[in-house]
Amino acid sequence: MNKKTILTVLSVVLLFLFLWYGDGHLSTYAMRIWEEVGIFLMLAASYNLINGVTGQFSLEPNGFVAIGAYVTAILILTPAQKEAMFIITPMVPWLQNLHMSFFPALIIGGLVTAFVGFLLGFPVFRVRGDYLAIVTLGFGLTIRVVSNNTVPITNGALGLKGLPTYTTIWWCWGWAVFAMIVIMRMVNSEFGRAMKAVRDDEDAAIAMGINTFWIKMTAFITAAFFEGVGGGLLASLITIISPTMFTFFLTFELLIIIVVGGLGSMTGTALATIVVIWGSEILRVVEQPMDIFGLHIPGIPGMRMVVFSVLLILIMIFAREGIMGQKEFSWDSLFNFFKKNKVAQK
């Protein structure tokens, strides 16, 4: 192991030490947000792989997270719970009796979502044009229609309740770190170069002998897998899911994260996830009633979303590069930064 690898491992250890400390000392609320940060980091890194690295604008997260959530939820609920819950129409028997522990349920949630990614990507990536965005947007709406109507599988509008609370800070961050490693390794390989080539100039990528269809598929299916797993983690964190839960706001938040961090930069995404998730919590203030200097301002529900959308538009127009642009944080650049500062001080 060289010096830089040791530093990286050390920072991950430090991260887990912080979480371990927080688990005992921070408020439940704060730890809940840190759990969310972990899950969102995995989601945002996946989302950035398809949008930022491969350059294919997509709006899949809420739909894919919903699939992962439903699959995982159905698998971790006990047959007895399911029997009690499906009061309108009984559940399909083989699903009713399917039951397993959390980890395999998450994996299956991820795999099912990856398969859906394959099914969606197949028609879209065969043609040129920006159809991915509209197809995934439509998919997010359609999955809601479908989960509302396939009552014997999803329990329709009633949703699924009382999921076991398996998701802990360790599950969230374990997956986050794992997803980051997989995705960054992918990006730093010939596959990643091919993805960036597709992003920069698709025709030239084809002329280099790159099978652009499969390269886009690889990025999309990988993202889908982790989004499915993320859905499973969220399901067990929130413990109830229903057709209306995973709205477009989820996708929108992730879009803001990857834009703020820099399209194509995974380390930027990590930074931005923390900033945006905590920022979003702080922004809740604008939705609550407040008293400033004796003046009563009623809370404006939904104001957060307006602020978010204005923010996104402004960033796109004035600060398209985000925090990191397409660059990645590296130890070398950090050392160089300090060296330069020292020289400057002299």
């Binding site: 010939e190 920069d200 280099m208």
Partner: peptide
């Protein structure tokens, strides 16, 4: 039509893609 955000070396490397010898 170069890949403008890749380095010169990375641009060259994409040319080896079709005979890539490792998998995902």
């Amino acid at each position: 039509r170069l890949f403008s955000n890749l380095t010169v070396l990375e641009n060259i490397l994409t040319g080896f893609h079709h005979k890539l010898q490792y998998n995902i």
